[in-house]
């Protein structure tokens, strides 16, 4: 038996909007730790890792570990039927073939049940080693979204370079080139507006802008985004989900042949 009650139901709605275009079908794993998902896109270029910790739910009952295969497009359709202020409860029976999403309006005058069919998904779980990253950039998520959107009108690939001067986002295409440099700026009124560049070693990596743009669908979840770069590893683009967890996107770099 599984019963997870999330008072801030809009978080789950936003989470689905952040991953449904990247991944079609995925297993949601439920354990005493929390509600989680790990999935790759169909071409195995990107991986998304979601964790919503059990402490973040008002009520969290998960009698035993459960993996529920869901079509994220269908799950998104159902969650779109929840109001932004609704409380969402996820319910499932052990060994059942459905999951129920219950939506309660804040005044308790409307209660809706949506039952969705589960599916068997043969997914491969990958081990993500803990890594020391060469450079970590934290910036406003809206700024990162703007940069990815702007650069994708010029080129297909972004080169992200971190030096002691700052972080540079570059692209090139048929019509020309573009370079956007951000310098560290911590003298801001609101901490979420800061640009913080932690450089242990300079790094420069190339990535497909199509994927970066897809990751920025998570922008409504968090005011800030953290980009972790190492020359040997996929980039990690992380958005915190309120106080309860995160969405991390891993993207394999483009490599010179």
């Amino acid at each position: 038996m599984l019963e997870l009650r999330l008072v801030q139901g809009s978080l789950l709605k936003k989470v689905l909007e952040s991953i449904k275009d990247l991944v079609n079908d995925a297993n949601f794993d439920c354990s005493s730790t929390g509600f989680s998902l790990q999935a790759m896109d169909s071409s195995h270029v990107a991986l998304v890792s979601l964790l919503l910790r059990s402490e973040g739910f008002e009520h969290y009952r998960c009698d035993r570990n459960l993996s529920m295969g869901m079509n994220l497009g269908n799950m998104s359709k159902m969650l779109k039927c929840a109001g932004n202020d609704d409380i969402i409860t996820i319910k499932a029976d052990d060994g059942g073939d459905t999951v129920t999403f219950m939506f309660e309006s804040p005044t308790q005058d409307k209660i809706a049940d949506f039952e969705m069919k589960l599916m068997d998904i043969d997914s491969e779980h990958l081990g993500i080693p803990d890594a020391e990253y060469h450079s970590i950039v934290r910036m406003p998520s809206s700024e990162f979204q703007r940069i990815c959107k702007d650069l994708s009108t010029i080129g297909d690939t972004v080169v992200i370079s971190v030096t002691k001067e700052g972080v540079k986002f570059s692209t090139a295409g048929d019509i020309g080139t573009a370079n956007i440099v951000l310098r560290q700026n911590t003298t801001v009124d609101k901490p979420e507006d800061a640009i913080v560049i932690e450089m242990n070693e300079p790094v420069s990596l190339s990535f497909a802008l199509r994927y970066m743009n897809s990751f920025t669908k998570a922008t409504p979840l968090s005011d800030t985004v953290t980009i972790s770069l190492s020359s040997e590893l996929p980039v990690v683009v992380e958005y915190k989900v309120a106080e309860m967890g995160y969405i991390r996107y891993y993207l394999a770099p483009k490599i010179e042949e």
Partner: peptide
């Protein structure tokens, strides 16, 4: 042009 890497060449099956 650089070649797109595959995530599975970085992270191994758990």
């Amino acid at each position: 042009d650089p070649k797109q890497g595959n995530i599975m060449s970085f992270f191994k099956k758990a």
